[in-house]
Design a protein around this nucleic acid. Sequence first.
DNA 1: GTCACACGGATCGCATACGATAACCTGTGA
DNA 2: TCACAGGTTATCGTATGCGATCCGTGTGAC
Lengths: 219, 219
Amino acid sequence: MATRTDVCYELLKGRILDGTYGPGHRLVIDQLGREHNISTIPWRESLRRLEAEGWVEIIPNVGARVATFDEGEWARTMRLLARLEGLATALASDELTEADLADARRMNREMREALADFDPMRFTQLNRQFHTVIFHRAPDKHLIALLDTEWARLDFIRRSAFTHAPGRAVESVAEHEALLDLLEAHADADTIETAARQHKLNTLEAVTRHAEARGTALA
Amino acid sequence: MATRTDVCYELLKGRILDGTYGPGHRLVIDQLGREHNISTIPWRESLRRLEAEGWVEIIPNVGARVATFDEGEWARTMRLLARLEGLATALASDELTEADLADARRMNREMREALADFDPMRFTQLNRQFHTVIFHRAPDKHLIALLDTEWARLDFIRRSAFTHAPGRAVESVAEHEALLDLLEAHADADTIETAARQHKLNTLEAVTRHAEARGTALA
DNA sequence: GTCACACGGATCGCATACGATAACCTGTGA
DNA sequence: TCACAGGTTATCGTATGCGATCCGTGTGAC
């Protein structure tokens, strides 16, 4: 059975990620305890963990609140994620089964459909799944864990500061296909890493350019 | 005043990093409490934080112990650090003052001296300082925090599984000089990133090769 | 002799209660 | 209008108790 601390952690993280507890939301320990009939200790411990992971800020003698990210944080996370995912994708190359590649291709097809249906939510979701399937095969647990949290970070920030670049989605799907071709052909690690990194940097640049054109600062 | 939780955290982390609590060392909460006259809760909270940062493993109903890393972890961390530091170095380029560069050059000179004096401890220490001075100027707090923990990880693992590559130190100093030249000349970001990344990968390769030659598995 | 199982110590998980401390708000009086 | 005192709120830290769980050990059946 999962410990209460785990339950509290999952509950809080879930609500932070799905937006129930938005940026800046105060997390009052006593209140949480009364609401869920769980004493303060598990809450305190899970808040410490969330603090270490960067989801929550704790100020001594004041309390905990959901972290807020300034707008530039999205760009910075993308920039970092490009490098991490470039590496992970290259490392995964040797580990990917044919079934994995088939899964990825299927997701990419579905993305094209989502695009035709004007379903951006589904597109975003599939995009994350597409990359997750690939990088989860990288033989480096620590790297995978980092990638998971950075992707979650990205999702969270996207909800607060909506980012978008019209037209980018089409290119993105094409780049996915090209990336899969490289993986299937067992291209050398450097080529794959560069392609995967550049794929993400292209998105970053498209969004940045779009934001600038609209006069919205991003950095 | 720092909270007790902070005190416990610093104490534990310090002892883990300096080797007092080696890999696998059991951290019994009650015992810690009795030894330092601090009740269990601050210990529990700091252990949660250390767990999230990867320094400690907590098994429900069994207890906490200092994490152990298999030998391949050093190589994996270097591989990751190469990418992170490549990025951070490139980002720092525009922010570095002349004083920073002068500091870095001085450290590199001292590294050459340490080399002549056969003082590997000092060399290692200076090497870390050299890179720290540079990447701490990168305009990305989160990235810097990641780099700090990964470097600490590296130090910790090095102590458990000693890694070494004779002759590499000389090249390393030369590559530092070249890197500083690029930074001083405000070379473009890609060039700097590649150089910084490759610098670390060269060390990784040298050590791997040396280990293989000695028949010691590293991966 | 060996294996399954029960027992007990060690340790954590969690609840509860209480005092200390710090931050914040508010109303009073000059 | 402003400074300050006092109350409120919340966390921080301690103490204590009890149940749950894990794990090593030893007993007893076969």
